[in-house]
Design a protein around this nucleic acid. Structure first.
Lengths: 154, 154
DNA sequence: TTTTCATGTAATTATATATGTTACGTGACG
DNA sequence: CGTCACGTAACATATATAATTACATGAAAA
């Protein structure tokens, strides 16, 4: 496994969900789209549920549903809901005693914080609807081309 | 994943080196400041040497020396010399066949690239001299307080 | 010239973090 | 009350990075 890919996975799955609005979809189905495990989906989506972006129901016919219109959810909303460590610069020590290292950490923290603000600002201006629009024109192709459940492929 | 801390380590060590200009310092000494292994220093500093920021000499009395004035080296220079993966957002797949995921990756790549540009721009405006100045006023305290060689502490 | 010291680097091991998987509990629907 | 699907803890696997070991190379000193 590489870097955290939760945001990428979440977006991918949410957009697929949007193609079947108001239909409860199981973790198994969502996991198929993302080529991952149902438990990973449940973990990832737990944050989205807490943020009110999706809802989940148990039992027969249960599953996940989108609760908000696509244009009401920005990528920043999702990012925040996932509590995903977006971008970071490693430090040698978190709480160093050395004054030199404290100064280094402070300078780097400042710079990273600013970059992070810019990224957040950028993500807050992109909604799920925007992404869907980019794909929309080829919706038909999309359905044919892809992202079927690789788990259960034979 | 474990985050790279090469930039942090390099800056810390370079600033300590600046306190003893023109003196060749061994990897062992530098490693002591950074509380790490001499080999890690040699690996990390290899990039800085290639970039002409520091020089190294072998044999008796050998070691590392700063080749440029502090105000001629920006943090961006160091970052670039280290070939350190600064900030990134994980993707589920690097080259997905799914059009939805392609759109998602493209959108995220754009946003991250912009944040990275801002960070680089920010780092290019901070020089080693700037960092040294922040610490300068308490140079004496610094010497007393710390970063002695923890490797050989008794 | 031989010894000693310090870098250069490959190979191996250790550690941290994220994902993948298994197992089992809980609630809802039939 | 049995089945289905989420909720979650526990454990396994994967990968990225640092730490360590080992040895070669080159330079200065004895």
């Amino acid at each position: 496994m590489k870097r955290s890919s939760r945001l990428s996975v979440a977006l991918h799955v949410l957009l697929h969900m949007a193609e079947q609005p108001d239909k409860a979809l199981t973790s198994d189905v969502l996991a198929g789209w993302a080529a991952t495990n149902p438990v990973v989906i449940r973990r990832t989506f737990a944050g989205l549920r807490d943020a009110g972006i999706v809802g989940s129901t148990k039992g027969h016919g249960g599953g996940w549903t989108l609760l908000k219109p696509l244009d009401a959810v920005s990528l920043a909303d999702i990012q925040a809901a996932l509590d995903d460590p977006v971008l970071a610069l490693g430090k040698a020590e978190e709480s160093p005693g050395c004054l030199v290292e404290q100064a280094v950490n402070a300078a780097l923290d400042d710079a990273v914080a600013e970059a992070r603000r810019l990224l957040d600002q950028r993500l807050s201006k992109i909604t799920l609807a925007d992404l869907a629009a980019r794909i929309g024109p080829r919706r038909v192709v999309l359905q044919a081309a892809g992202c079927k459940d690789p788990h259960h492929e034979s």
